[in-house]
């Protein structure tokens, strides 16, 4: 019996690898199809604007509230640590650098994946399950360019704006706790921040990161929705997979991007 089990295991692994590679190929082709079918997203900009409302505006509250709390926690924890070395004046730069370089783009992307990404997957999956996609094809309308591409560009546009708002609100949260509650000197808080944060090195890189995350999360959400089996169970699995895959891909990409961006510093 044992050799049969081993055989099954190996076959299972082989199967998983073949499946995974196949899916990756399909995903890449899907991504290419989105880019090719993007014309309508710009020609009929209101299609994209509508989706920005559903991805961007609807994510605002969770992004702003989380940003504020993350900034406040950073202020509190940063102060606790920095004051041991007598350099609590560096609080501003600590809060700003952590937010702009890492926490802003990464946390905003994770929140975006669970708020907007899962919604996109569920929506597209349901459109498929209720034959709306098929109906569109039968009406000679390409669903990729009519449904998928506008959502893609909306996600790519919203993500950096959300990340910027997350960071800005976070800095304000840090200021609130550090300066208003604890009483770090206002002047040194801002001046240290300004001195430490570089526009090109930190802010532009942070924005680049959030654009990349926006592309990744939106593409994953769209693909999972489009690829979902057209059943209630299939859609719910796809939604879960969107959040999990997005989180892993965002964290992995973050490491890779950080290596390229900040290694020389």
């Amino acid at each position: 019996m044992a050799h049969r089990k081993v055989g099954f295991g190996l076959r299972g692994i082989g199967h998983a690898v073949v499946n995974g590679v196949g899916r990756l190929g399909y995903a890449s082709r899907f991504f290419l199809m989105i880019l090719i079918g993007s014309g309508a997203s710009f020609r009929r900009i209101h299609l994209t604007i509508r989706e920005i409302y559903f991805t961007g505006v609807m994510s605002l509250i969770i992004i702003l509230v989380s940003g504020l709390f993350v900034g406040m926690v950073l202020g509190l924890q940063g102060y606790e640590t920095l004051q041991k070395y007598g350099s609590e004046s560096a609080l501003g730069s600590l809060v700003a650098l952590s937010l702009v370089r890492e926490l802003g783009p990464v946390l905003a992307a994770l929140l975006f994946a669970s708020r907007a990404g899962s919604a996109i997957t569920a929506e597209i999956g349901l459109m498929k399950a209720t034959e709306q996609i098929a109906a569109m094809e039968m009406m000679a309308v390409d669903p990729i360019s009519r449904v998928v591409a506008p959502r893609f560009w909306a996600g790519v546009t919203s993500m950096p704006l959300l990340a910027a708002m997350f960071s800005a609100v976070g800095v304000f949260g840090g200021y609130l706790v550090g300066v208003v509650f604890i009483g770090v000197d206002v002047g040194s808080f801002w001046s240290q921040m300004e001195a430490a944060v570089d526009f090109r090195q930190d802010i532009v890189n942070g924005v680049i990161k959030s654009v990349v995350f926006g592309i990744a999360v939106t593409a994953i959400a769209l693909f999972e929705g489009y690829d979902a089996p057209p059943t209630a169970e299939g859609v719910s699995h796809a939604t879960t997979r969107t959040v999990v895959t997005s989180a892993l891909v965002v964290l992995g990409l973050d490491f890779i991007l950080t290596v390229f961006m900040f290694r020389g510093v």
């Binding site: 920005i52 409302y53 961007g56 505006v57 605002l60 700003a96 702009v100 919203s158 950096p160 704006l161 959300l162 910027a164 708002m165 960071s167 800005a168 609100v169 800095v171 801002w190 921040m193 300004e194 001195a195 944060v197 570089d198 526009f199 930190d202 802010i203 942070g206 924005v207």
Partner: peptide, 18 residues
């Protein structure tokens, strides 16, 4: 939303990033 995002970017660029 777009204006808010751009303002946030500007705050980061001028107030934080100097």
């Amino acid at each position: 939303f777009m204006v808010g995002g751009l303002i946030a970017l500007l705050i980061l660029a001028f107030k934080v990033g100097n």
